Lab assay of single mutants.
Amino acid sequence: VTVHVNRYTYHFDNPEEAEKFAREMAKRLNMTVEIHGNTLKVE
């Protein structure tokens, strides 16, 4: 599972951890999480 935050890319083996990380980053940056299959984008 890949998480994109701005120009950074993070890889996770565990989808739940990836989503938790993405949501935490989105909250911190006041952004939203978009899910595209195995890719989560924080925008």
Rank of each mutant, 00 (worst) to 15 (best):
F21H: 01
E16D: 11
N30H: 12
V42I: 09
L29C: 15
T9W: 10
V33H: 01
P15W: 15
K27S: 10
R23M: 11
V3R: 01
E34W: 06
R7G: 15
T2P: 02
T39A: 10
E16K: 11
K27F: 06
T9S: 09
V5C: 13
L29Y: 13
Y10W: 10
N6P: 03
F12L: 00
A26S: 05
V3P: 01
M25G: 00
R23E: 09
F21Y: 03
K41D: 07
H36T: 10
E17Q: 09
N30D: 07
M25Y: 04
I35A: 09
K20A: 12
T39W: 08
F21M: 02
V1P: 03
K41R: 14
K41Y: 15
R23A: 08
R7H: 14
E16S: 09
E16V: 12
V1K: 04
E17V: 08
H4E: 10
L40G: 06
A22K: 01
N14K: 07
I35W: 14
Y10V: 06
M31W: 05
H36Y: 11
G37D: 08
A22R: 01
V42D: 06
E43D: 11
H4M: 12
N38A: 05
N6C: 15
R28S: 07
K41T: 14
K41A: 09
N14W: 04
L40E: 05
M25R: 02
N30M: 06
V42Q: 03
T32M: 09
G37F: 06
V3Y: 00
R28H: 09
V1C: 14
T2R: 07
I35M: 09
V5R: 02
R28G: 05
L29P: 07
L40F: 07
E24Y: 13
H4W: 03
L29R: 04
I35G: 04
T9M: 12
T32A: 08
F21C: 06
V3W: 00
N6T: 06
R28M: 12
Y10M: 03
E34S: 15
I35N: 05
N30R: 07
V33S: 01
E43A: 14
N38Q: 05
L40M: 13
H36S: 11
H11S: 05
V1F: 15
G37Y: 10
N30A: 05
T2Q: 08
F12K: 00
H4C: 14
R7Y: 11
N38L: 05
G37M: 04
R23P: 00
H11N: 06
V3Q: 01
T2S: 08
E16H: 09
N38S: 07
V33E: 01
